[in-house]
Write a protein that binds this DNA or RNA. Sequence first.
DNA 1: TAGTCATAATGACCATGGTCATAATTGACA
DNA 2: TGTCAATTATGACCATGGTCATTATGACTA
Lengths: 199, 199
Amino acid sequence: MVTREARKEDKRARLRDAAWALFREKGFEPTTTKEIAARAGVASGTLFLYARDKADLLFLVFHERLSAAVDEGLRTLPDGPLLEQLLHLFAGFFRVYAEAPEVARAFVKELPGADGPNAQLTNRLTMSLLTHVSGLVQRAQARGELAADVPPMLLAQNAFALYFFALTAWLGRMTTLEGALDPLLRSSLALQLRGLSGK
Amino acid sequence: MVTREARKEDKRARLRDAAWALFREKGFEPTTTKEIAARAGVASGTLFLYARDKADLLFLVFHERLSAAVDEGLRTLPDGPLLEQLLHLFAGFFRVYAEAPEVARAFVKELPGADGPNAQLTNRLTMSLLTHVSGLVQRAQARGELAADVPPMLLAQNAFALYFFALTAWLGRMTTLEGALDPLLRSSLALQLRGLSGK
DNA sequence: TAGTCATAATGACCATGGTCATAATTGACA
DNA sequence: TGTCAATTATGACCATGGTCATTATGACTA
């Protein structure tokens, strides 16, 4: 038996896939909501039962991809200094965005003040990422790499802020993808970590 | 004699003032471009000769107010530690946004990848702010407050990134105005500056 | 002053995002 | 199986942002 919930979930998935395919093919702006609805096999109005507005589709799409990147990043986390672990994680996110920078730009634009239903998912994801990073900080403290009196969550926030700034600089075409990761983000994080060494 | 340039400048100013007044009264979204044009005394299409799109009006409006905040902040800069000087500057920006948080949210949303004609102005303003902050860093180094081998521009960027994150947290309703400035931004900047002390 | 041309202004027009009254579907319960 | 309230879907419709062919303006020259 196919439950209501399952049907809804199926439609949500179809809309997500249709949106992602079209955004990739034609970009965010040029894609119309009616095209997406048609491709997903639903009526034009139905789309708005699954996303509050067009922008909310971006959260639907990126939530899935970014969750995967978090999982993958944590799974393949290297041993070694905190700086390298952070870069490893963030590099994974950059790869997600690099699949479609145009669409990523639209997504990042919507991040400040995001409050649609799907945006909530992304916010929760960010929170959980911060918690994980905070955990990495604590591990670095445990192995004596980092001063024990650094508030882990605060450092996690700062690291995230620097990551977000580098991301914005890249998407704003102020640097290349590689440049954003390597000179920019690496040196930013290094400067933040400088002087926080253990003992 | 009234030159063409003067007429254009006058229209630009009228559009800017009309936009600001209406955005304050009704918010960004609910204000229509035709209302703004009418209030400025121009035809609906004329507006788009002065702003590439509705969002570009935000840059027209905020460029003026943020420039003033930069000037004022630098003019009244306190003596004392770098941390206090940075907070003084950033507090000025928060005050600008606090005049109309709803509109500020729309503005900040448009910042990533801003490329309209008026957006250029704002980008230049950010660059000049970074240069000024970099100057403050150098002065702190000169007075021995900060290690001499810290790259000034890099620290300026990091400080700005932390400011931007705090701003986003406030506009995203994750903290109050005071909370964004005092526990959040202050402790972020303090953590960044920790361990960079001179000598 | 009349003539000419680049620049600026206009507003009818169009495509699209989003709404909402109506219709269809579902499944709990008898 | 039949009933019916609740949930879900539909697409005609509307308001708005943005375009563009047309018109107006004004700075020149002769």
